[in-house]
Computed example of a mutant assay.
Amino acid sequence: MTRHYPDPQDWYEDQAVGHRGLSPTRTVTAADIGTFAGLTGDMAELHTSETHAAATEFGGRIAHGMLNLALMHGLVVRGGRLVSSGLALLGWSEVRFTGPVRIGDTVQAEWETIALRESASRPEAGIVTDRVSLRNQHGEVVVTGTVTELVRKRPV
Rank of each mutant, 00 (worst) to 15 (best):
E124V: 01
R117G: 02
S93Y: 04
G41C: 03
Q108G: 10
R102P: 05
A70L: 02
Q108W: 00
H47T: 00
G104I: 11
A31S: 14
V76F: 06
L134Q: 07
P6C: 04
G18L: 06
V28N: 06
R81C: 11
A115D: 14
E94M: 09
T56D: 04
N136K: 08
I33T: 08
V107W: 11
F58Q: 13
L39I: 05
D7T: 11
T48A: 04
S119H: 07
V17C: 12
I114L: 13
R78F: 00
H47R: 06
H47W: 07
A88M: 13
Q137L: 00
G18K: 13
D42Y: 06
W11D: 05
G80K: 02
R61S: 05
M43Y: 12
G79A: 03
A55N: 13
T113Q: 05
R131S: 12
G74M: 09
G91M: 07
I33E: 03
Y12D: 12
A16K: 14
R96Y: 08
L75P: 11
W111C: 04
I62C: 07
V141K: 14
A54Y: 07
V83T: 13
V142G: 09
E110A: 14
S121R: 14
Q15A: 13
D10E: 13
L90W: 05
L22H: 01
D32Y: 08
T27Q: 10
V141L: 11
A70H: 01
S119W: 02
V141M: 10
R20A: 12
T51C: 07
T27L: 02
A37N: 03
S133C: 13
A125D: 07
G18T: 09
A70S: 15
T98F: 01
R117V: 00
W92Y: 11
T113H: 05
Q137Y: 04
L87F: 03
R102I: 04
H73V: 06
P6G: 10
V83P: 01
Q15K: 09
R131I: 03
V28L: 14
I62A: 09
I33M: 07
H19T: 13
E112A: 03
T129S: 12
R122A: 15
V141R: 11
L116H: 06
L71R: 02
A115G: 08
A37K: 03
D105K: 00
G79M: 08
G145F: 05
L116F: 04
V17K: 06
L87V: 15
T40V: 10
P100K: 09
T56C: 08
A30Q: 15
I62F: 08
P8K: 07
I33A: 06
R78L: 13
I62W: 09
G65A: 04
R81W: 14
T113G: 05
G86S: 14
P8I: 11
E13C: 11
G80I: 00
A115Y: 04
L90H: 00
P123N: 02
S119T: 01
A37G: 07
V141A: 13
Y12W: 15
R81Q: 15
E45L: 15
W111S: 12
G21C: 11
M66T: 06
H19N: 12
L82S: 05
A120G: 12
R20W: 00
V17Q: 06
A30T: 10
T48P: 08
H52C: 10
W92A: 10
A53R: 04
I114E: 11
R122L: 10
M43V: 12
A109H: 08
H19V: 14
A115W: 03
G59N: 08
G60C: 10
T25Y: 00
